[in-house]
């Protein structure tokens, strides 16, 4: 799962897709997830990082992760050839 290379993500959480001209805002935890995805982390690594840092349950993280990825796909921010979820 990879964020498209040309998608611009600012420190403030502003996301711009230059292919479509669409822009979005991510909240702080969304930003962290995006950065981890950008760094090439898979789901296991992302879940571990989140659980280490925040008081949450494995199931909750999994659900939020899947919701987030669905949204990124829906908004066309994920590389087409990397659709296989780890």
């Amino acid at each position: 799962m990879k964020i498209k290379k040309n998608v611009a993500i600012s420190d403030s959480g502003f996301i711009f897709n230059p292919d479509t001209g669409e822009s979005f805002s991510a909240n702080p935890i969304g930003m962290e997830m995006l950065e981890m995805l950008r760094d090439g982390m898979d789901y296991e690594e992302i879940r571990k990082n989140i659980l280490d840092k925040y008081k949450s349950e494995k199931d909750t993280v999994e659900k939020d992760y899947n919701d987030f990825i669905t949204m990124l796909k829906q908004y066309n921010l994920i590389e087409n050839d990397g659709q296989k979820d780890d």
Partner: peptide
């Protein structure tokens, strides 16, 4: 991409893209 379109379909805001 037109970002702001009037009811006449005219763009009053837009952004250059790289498609």
């Amino acid at each position: 991409r037109k970002q702001y379109i009037t009811d006449k379909g005219k763009a009053w805001g837009g952004i250059s893209i790289s498609d």
